[in-house]
Amino acid sequence: MVHPLIGIHAAIGELGVLAFLWVFVELLNPTEPRIKRAKIAAALGTLFFLASWVAGGYYYVTYYGPAVKPVIKSGPAPWAHGVVMEVKEHVFLFLPFLSALTTGLVYRYKNNLIKDAGARTSVLLLCALIVIVGLLMAGMGYIISTGARAALEGKIA
């Protein structure tokens, strides 16, 4: 049976990605109300990534390591763990810190983001980076699940 925590980890992570996409959209053409919403979205996004870290970490340590990893390694796509999962579990660690920095910039510059094009461009670039890395995490999660499914199908056949 699929562990519910993996779904929770993925869903919260995607909410984090959507939150920073929201910040990006609000700051494309910022006004005071948009900046107010961007501050809320950035703070929420950081909290979502922290929650996703806890949920994913608990799943990884208590369930994935003992039960899923050996299955993938014995299947037809051992690289799904050996490369993809190894990269994912470590690159994921970048997201909470990138989120904290972006949130820090939004709270620091506040309404100055309307006039300060440099600060606004910086926040937009960081949001784009967070969205891209977050979507990469989702794609890697799909590849890892496929590796596990392929291994289980091999055992049934």
Binding site: L101, T121, S122
Partner: peptide, 8 residues
């Protein structure tokens, strides 16, 4: 801030 962002 742009230089700092570039580093990150």
């Amino acid at each position: 801030v742009q230089k700092e962002t570039k580093y990150v």
